[in-house]
Design a protein around this nucleic acid. Structure first.
Lengths: 185, 185
DNA sequence: GTCTATATGTTGATAGAC
DNA sequence: GTCTATCAACATATAGAC
């Protein structure tokens, strides 16, 4: 059961996309095997259970998220960092309108589970808030965790409702309004 | 296949609760039959498919939502109406922290589906926005649909993140902040 | 109208040949 | 290490006795 390998990578990549499009429960191992072009029986050589695949997906999501945060921290201007993050989301508006927030939609699905996956997913949200709170702290604010929560909740809400209404344009305009809110702080 | 009956009511009531707690896909007909104390084979006398049960659940949710809106429209003070709605949500903070938003979490699950149920669920969100937009219009605002979207997105975001973090207190404080925002308009 | 028994299909997971 | 064949469990749905 190797940690890295071409097939393993392909399996995780396929699972990542399928879970985003269909959700975790609606995605079958057959789907993942099919999309990654790995024979179904072979999947179990790389992952003992379906949940293990989801955990690998979440792990990648967390890493990618961390990279995104780092990419939005180059300047020492916290306000600019927050705006840069929102701008990155704006660029994905179409995909979000179609499939929802990569993290948020998975969280909501896993939250209805007793699986330990739930905690891993929720950790992504918490790290997201922590990063935002840190920016607010740099801006000299108190009650930074409240502000961090407000910021992330605002983003998640826009993505959820924008997804439900299938309106990428509305997602964009609302995210731009969020930028203005940040600027006004 | 009667429209009303004691057993049918019990089935819908059970499905309503189970779907909120477990999600639609994780809830089996056996679960619903068990909780409503209706024999499994008998379920099909009342509903032809599992999706039909979900549709009945959504129908009830919409009716209940409409009642809530009407209950928040007694006064002719739109600002007060919006605040009253938020206060009603505040009262459910514990349940929301545990299982998420009744409408939002179901929407996000069904949105990943090609089922016609998706549209029914999304209609709930749209009606929610429409009601809010109407209040903003009464307040003399232009761009009311943008404001209505912002209001609902804010509520949904708070519920989603509050659910992920299992923090009823944070849900309450954020909803109170939302009230202050409304008051400041 | 009500319910038991069961068909039918799908899914996660395994055994074992190569 | 890889893959085919298949199992066991579970889910939706139906047939048919009462």
């Amino acid at each position: 059961m190797p940690r890295t390998s071409d097939k393993r990578d392909r399996l995780v990549e396929a699972a990542k996309n399928l879970i985003h499009r269909q959700g975790f429960h609606r995605t079958t191992l057959a789907d993942i095997a099919d999309e990654s072009e790995v024979p179904l029986g072979n999947v179990y050589y790389y992952f003992k259970t379906k949940e293990d695949i989801c955990e690998a997906v979440l792990e990648e999501r967390r890493l990618k998220l961390q990279e995104t945060f780092d990419g939005c921290c180059k300047s020492n201007q916290p306000k600019q960092n927050l705006i840069e993050l929102v701008n990155k989301i704006i660029k994905s508006s179409e995909k979000i309108a179609e499939h929802g927030c990569i993290i948020g939609s998975l969280c909501q699905e896993l939250d209805k589970t007793k699986s330990p996956l739930r905690d891993t997913a929720d950790k992504c949200i918490q790290e997201h808030i922590d990063w935002a709170s840190k920016q607010f702290r740099k801006m000299g604010y108190k009650k930074t965790s409240e502000l961090g929560f407000e910021f992330i909740a605002r983003l998640e809400g826009i993505m959820l409702v924008g997804h439900a209404l299938h309106e990428p344009k509305r997602i964009k305009s609302q995210l731009r309004a969020t930028c203005k809110w940040i600027e006004s702080l």
